[in-house]
């Protein structure tokens, strides 16, 4: 694998010399040579999920920018581990990419037994977008602000019940992070997805959910749910009046259901840079902006280095949460 990518890089340079093109224009060259056929983005979640929606919006624009078809292939299963495994063992030529998500960093923090190393086996390209979670309570819960919620959670009489999309999902670990940060204990009620959790929340069976805003939006708008704060460090574009958790309760709190493009490790830098440029250009188009906005996704973007450090911080944070909450899968 390593050898193949080195020879490939050599041939790229050789090609550059042969055509008398300065090595400074490597990204431009990569765009001429790459892509060499249809590009496939693997998505570890099923059609219609936020990750899938963002991937398809992006892929349509990338196709125009790169001048080659960019396809989205859903390979759902095992919290996206199946798709991640497939890309980890794909050729490092930029033809097969993964829409990595928060599930990958959480998977690493949980120490799932998988045959790949995330992020070690991957070359970050660029962050794409994030769906903030909204701290959502049932209207009967006696908390209209984060301060009041924290007081209730700390009192623990009875212990607050929080729903999530399942063990080891961003909504679960975000609630755990919140609880351990404010020194409270809450009881976890796992569901098969945020939609199910929000349904029981609206019926008043549980007290709160850290719900991706795409799941909570309709309930908050019709008044069957009450939103208290959003979980990204900046306010949600969908609910600009809601404060952030960081503003009100836990400084530095910054979690979301995020996703970003990664390539297999060893993909030539020229290709990674060209892809990152293309992603950032695509994120500026109206089609992607509007589509993401209506699905409750906030665009991110940035350089490969930005994404690499983002992933490092995420893995560190989630590992702390897993340890603090004593979550063990085995």
């Amino acid at each position: 694998m390593q050898l193949r990518s080195i020879t490939r890089r050599c041939s790229l340079i050789g090609l550059a010399c042969a055509f008398g093109i300065s090595a400074f224009h490597a990204p431009a060259l990569a765009q001429e040579d790459y892509p060499s056929g249809p590009v496939t983005i693997l998505v570890g979640f099923s059609a219609g999920s936020s990750t899938d929606v963002a991937s398809r919006l992006l892929a349509a624009q990338l196709s125009e920018i790169l001048g080659e078809r960019v396809l989205v292939e859903n390979r759902p299963g095992a919290a996206s581990s199946i798709a991640t495994q497939a890309v980890a063992s794909a050729n490092a030529d930029g033809q097969t990419l993964l829409m990595a998500t928060v599930a990958n960093t959480i998977g690493t923090a949980l120490g799932r037994d998988v045959a790949y190393d995330f992020p070690g086996d991957f070359a970050p390209v660029a962050l794409v977008g994030a769906v903030p979670m909204i701290v959502t309570v049932h209207p009967d819960v006696k908390a209209t602000s984060m301060e009041e919620l924290i007081a209730l959670a700390r009192a623990g009489e009875p212990m607050l019940l929080y729903g999530s999309a399942g063990v080891g999902t961003a909504p679960h670990l975000s609630a755990e992070l919140f609880a351990s940060s404010v020194g409270a204990e809450m009881t976890h009620v796992p569901y098969q997805g945020s939609g199910d959790a929000v349904r029981d929340l609206a019926a008043g069976r549980i007290d709160l959910v850290f719900a991706p805003q795409s799941s909570a939006a309709s309930g908050i708008e019709d008044g069957s749910l009450r939103g208290l704060a959003s979980t990204l460090s900046q306010r949600s574009a969908m609910f600009p009046d809601l404060p952030t958790v960081s503003e009100t309760a836990v400084e530095g709190f910054d979690t979301s259901v995020w996703f970003g493009l990664v390539a297999p490790a060893g993909t030539p830098d020229a290709i990674v840079d060209a892809l990152a440029d293309a992603v950032n250009t695509a994120l500026e188009t109206d089609a992607v902006r509007d589509g993401m906005a209506s699905a409750g996704i906030q665009p991110l973007g940035g350089s490969p280095a930005d994404m690499a450090s983002y992933i490092d911080v995420e893995v560190g944070n989630w590992s702390d949460v897993v340890e603090a909450a004593g979550i063990s899968l085995n």
């Binding site: 929606v53 795409s214 019709d222 409750g296």
Partner: peptide, 14 residues
């Protein structure tokens, strides 16, 4: 439901 939300339509009582 995902398809509806993409069009900016929120399924719900309203």
């Amino acid at each position: 439901m995902g398809a509806l939300m993409l069009h900016g339509i929120l399924p719900g009582p309203s």
